[in-house]
Design a protein around this nucleic acid. Structure first.
Lengths: 335, 335
DNA sequence: TTGTAAGCGTTATCAA
DNA sequence: TTGATAACGCTTACAA
């Protein structure tokens, strides 16, 4: 069935009465073509419905213009918000996003990278999922650039974008203490990713500095349901906490709902809650969750800028630490 | 800086002591290669770190393996859930997803299609955004297949996947009437997309058949904030509705929150609410929203199956009508 | 089953 | 500024 489907530069050249290299140049920004030649070519292309074949162009240039986005749990509010930003900015930079879903585990990140390599993606951005250590090497070896968002890999080469999780955790302790809370808790998933752990240890340490103990509980993934389970566990303890920092907003929403509807605890009067991410739902009237905003735009632009820039061997530039703004809403008791 | 980065089939051939076509065949499913040859090739490839160049393969085969996903508002719960499913099933079918974000309007869908064509995508799936009429033609002309999800385009050629919106709307009327509600309202966005309008007109018609009038209000996009505005408008009317069908869950959540927190109306006791989509938040304890489930898995598999099948000129098969299951939760008063 | 050789649609190089 | 020509890395007749 594969008949003659696409128009090639040859045909455009013929119609415009120029050589095929002229056609190529007409579509290459900054090439030396006379205005009249370009004019003729563009018109002929228009009439014929010609579109530069990026497969062939990528083959020649050794640069496909493709950036591979590797992600698990895309449907999660924070992930999808980041994805939105990333695709948008990538497009603005003239690149195109190839999305690889790694929900089905089984070395899926590796397979994803393989895919990226097969299509000669210029770069990969890992938004989630735990990459194998050998991956950075694989990318390096194939000349691919790599961006790691919120996951720590100490290998040199990739750009690592992280947040100031520890400082954020400190601010939460301060806020809780000001609100007069004394029985602190931390609700975490047991995924154990670096940023999640940084929030936890930062919180525990800052509390300790204030002479306060923290009850830590970990369970499941970072979703709403886990938040409910964590509430179940923490709110049935003999010394019930009066303030809880949840590692993500999703956990916080689940926690808050369980506290209110299952335990009839009023938030924030008897229980202060802080989350992390500032997903859209955090601002909904049912939650009014105090949280930290993931700087998705800044994350995306750091990534895209780095990818668009000429590779420089400067190792200082391969790590960015961005600030997560504290967003005050109503889920922390007024001091 | 573009040095020799990738290993080519030539080098693998040399190392394995075979011809380069043998290498090609070793990586082509179903090609005729002896086990021993394949063995040698695979081993050499492994050692050298060879990966088939899909750019070149696509060029030859006239089939890139790329499917273009065209979407606006990716960060929205329903969209991102559909995206998750689509990417997953596409991957399972051996295809790869190219994501094009059309949030910035200005003929962005057209530009997106252009992009798809440049990369010689085998197909495009339009998840949202209003395509220009000429687009189907453009796709057809370039041999690309097209899937339209929840948007009606009466041109032949593309696969159109829709839901039984009208039937769903009828069920809502039945449910409301059974619950003893008499003052019906419909809260819609003013986007005016076909599926949204089908729900509205279906609801109004079914109500009329029961001898009931419907107050219809339209505003903004299909988001949470619009739901609040719609509540403001509908709940301040002299004859306050006692049942409202919202065109999407996001609208419903906003509506419910406004009803409860701004108007102190208890749901479902004094106001029954039904949404559409069954986004994750619909099941959260704060909402317990009765709604219709978008059959995202079925949608995705219909799309992927159709794309994987041989093109058949059968026009009957180019339209699929899927069922949206009614999900009973607590936002409709018990009869 | 295997190798040879001809293409696929570009861009880069080099004269003109 | 232009046009011929040689790559790019692959697949696929065709012949052996």
């Amino acid at each position: 069935m594969s008949q003659k489907l696409f128009v090639s530069a040859d045909e455009v050249a013929k119609r415009a009465g120029v050589s095929r290299s002229a056609v190529s140049r007409a579509f290459t920004p900054g090439a030396s073509v006379s205005a009249s030649t370009r004019q003729k070519v563009v018109q002929a292309a228009e009439e014929l419905g010609y579109h530069v074949n990026h497969l062939a162009r990528g083959l020649m240039r050794n640069e496909s213009g493709i950036v591979c986005l590797i992600v698990s749990d895309v449907a999660t509010p924070y992930r999808s918000a980041l994805l939105r930003e990333l695709t948008q900015q990538l497009q603005l930079a003239g690149k195109v996003a190839m999305l690889v879903n790694t929900d089905r585990s089984d070395g899926s990140v590796d397979r994803a990278l393989q895919q990226a390599i097969r299509y000669r993606a210029d770069a990969s951005i890992i938004m989630s999922g735990l990459p194998d250590k050998s991956i950075a090497q694989l990318c390096l070896r194939s000349g691919q650039r790599l961006v790691l968002i919120n996951r720590d890999d100490d290998q040199p080469g990739p750009l690592r974008i992280n947040l100031d999780d520890t400082e954020a955790a400190q601010r939460v302790v301060t806020a809780f203490v000001r609100a007069g809370c004394r029985r602190l808790a931390f609700a975490n998933s047991d995924a154990g990713t670096p940023s999640l752990m940084a929030r936890e240890t930062g919180f525990v340490a800052a509390a300790k500095a204030q002479g306060l103990d923290v009850t830590v509980e970990r369970y499941g993934l970072t979703g709403y349901e886990s938040g409910k389970v964590l509430a179940q566990r923490l709110l049935t303890k003999s010394e019930r906490p009066d303030a809880v920092f949840c590692a993500t907003d999703l956990l916080a929403c689940g926690f808050m709902d369980a506290a209110r509807h299952q335990f009839s605890i009023s938030v924030p009067e008897s229980l202060s809650i802080v989350g992390f991410d500032d997903i859209e739902q955090a601002s909904w009237s049912s939650y009014e969750l105090t949280t930290f905003a993931q700087p998705v735009m800044a994350i995306a632009s750091e990534a895209v800028q780095w990818l668009s820039a000429e590779p420089s061997g400067d190792p200082d530039q391969t790590s960015k630490r961005l600030h997560a703004e504290f967003v005050w809403r109503g889920s922390v008791r007024a001091g």
